[in-house]
Nucleic acid binder design. Sequence first.
DNA 1: TTGCGTGTTCAGTGTGAACTGAAGTCGATC
DNA 2: GATCGACTTCAGTTCACACTGAACACGCAA
Lengths: 154, 154
Amino acid sequence: MSVERETRLSAWVERVAAHFTQEGIPLIGGRIMGYLLVCDPPERTAAELSEELEASSGSISTNLKLLVNMELVTKKTRRGRDAALYRIDEKRWADMVQRRLDAMIGVRELTRAGMQLLSGDPHRAHRLRTVDELYTWLAGELTELWERRPQPPR
Amino acid sequence: MSVERETRLSAWVERVAAHFTQEGIPLIGGRIMGYLLVCDPPERTAAELSEELEASSGSISTNLKLLVNMELVTKKTRRGRDAALYRIDEKRWADMVQRRLDAMIGVRELTRAGMQLLSGDPHRAHRLRTVDELYTWLAGELTELWERRPQPPR
DNA sequence: TTGCGTGTTCAGTGTGAACTGAAGTCGATC
DNA sequence: GATCGACTTCAGTTCACACTGAACACGCAA
């Protein structure tokens, strides 16, 4: 039963990794994300991740750095020779999602610039204006939405 | 002045393409998007796009197909040997954005499945639950947001 | 200083995706 | 049916990126 569950979980980790691959995160990075979400105990060393996920130490290092940089994983160093411990910072997940949304509505800078270039020719700018209005609306809504986001306790 | 503007516009098209590259759209596809947003007149044949964007006919064909499939570009065939005309369907831009958002919150299927696997161990499921709650909240908000989206006139 | 465990860097390899361009298909006209 | 133009398909090439693993750097302990 327990072994069975771990097997299913590692298949689940693979699905998570596949999903985030589509969001531009390297496969190994996605595996780390999934694994750190469900492993028990929640903290792991780089060496443990390397073994558990069957990835090279270099790849683990690079991807941990990426995830730490995204502030989705925290690194806890210890005294002496002890290896650092990594754990998911699930409360920061929202920040990552927000950055993703911000990147989407970032096109608005471009639509604005394009409108500028087409100023003086409203007819020609019509298509662009439609798109610009969409992003303007969306940017406003998302900002408002994010401001009223319920903070999880603790 | 007009030539100057066209030069600036083609640089702008390049920036648009670069942006959508990050959203997983091939470079040439992004160029087509940008170009069809601002070209005058708004309709173009595949051959014209090939020349204007200096891309091979094959690449134009593949990417137009992609964009038509995304319903972001419409294809208008004509009688006889005349080439089909392509134009941006800027009103469908919102649909593309929505699909993108749907893909993001699609992880929720995974968090749900993971929670299932960890049922019976609430403590271990804690990290995952935090993430699941985020996506659940976001999915609800985005659905509601989209429902009240102002439809552009016409 | 030496030794050891850990993490990082980097050159090399492999893989997959995008682009090209020529060949092929389709449809219409003559 | 032959021909022609327009688009699509596809094999081949190119290129960028992720991954590997060995060499390296670091820090502590003895």
